[in-house]
Amino acid sequence: MNISFQLNGKQVQADIMPHLRCTEVLRETFHCFSLRCRCDNSDCGSCMILVDKNPVYACLMAAFELQNHEVWTIEGISEQDGFHDIVAGFHRANAQLCIHCAPARALATQALLEQSLNPTWKQLTDTAMSVNCGCTSLPCIIRAITCAARERARRQNAK
């Protein structure tokens, strides 16, 4: 099946089997190695991507579902200016993330910051809970997301 979609701002297409997992397509065909494949059933959340600015788990998406959508992985997001806010926020909160979950945490934060720079407690917990990893405690992640939101708001106000 031929699919075409936008990946990190660029129009791409590929001839793939429709029932391949998105993780497989994005890693093997488009070399997005920031996607971690750990559980294949949305338990860990390490394979998060943004589809039309919404966070979704790539392991729960079949390849044909990518058709005509706008997909962002952390490879694309990290090229943008706003990524530094996320890094600064996590640094400030002393988050000792592991390599597995860190990209997904950054993407989840990015998705939230696009929604609101003054997130509610519910939004914060929801964002922190969308990635399940044992490396860092949830309160620490919430602190980190709050710091990232503050950094982003400060930068935008400075402009």
Binding site: R21, N41, L60, M61, F64
Partner: peptide, 22 residues
């Protein structure tokens, strides 16, 4: 597709019904 995705098994490909009307 959540009902099918939850039963799609593990591995590189998803186990899905034969014909899908998306």
């Amino acid at each position: 597709g959540m009902a099918f995705k939850q039963q799609s098994g593990h591995g590189a490909v998803m186990k899905l019904p034969g014909t899908l009307i998306v």
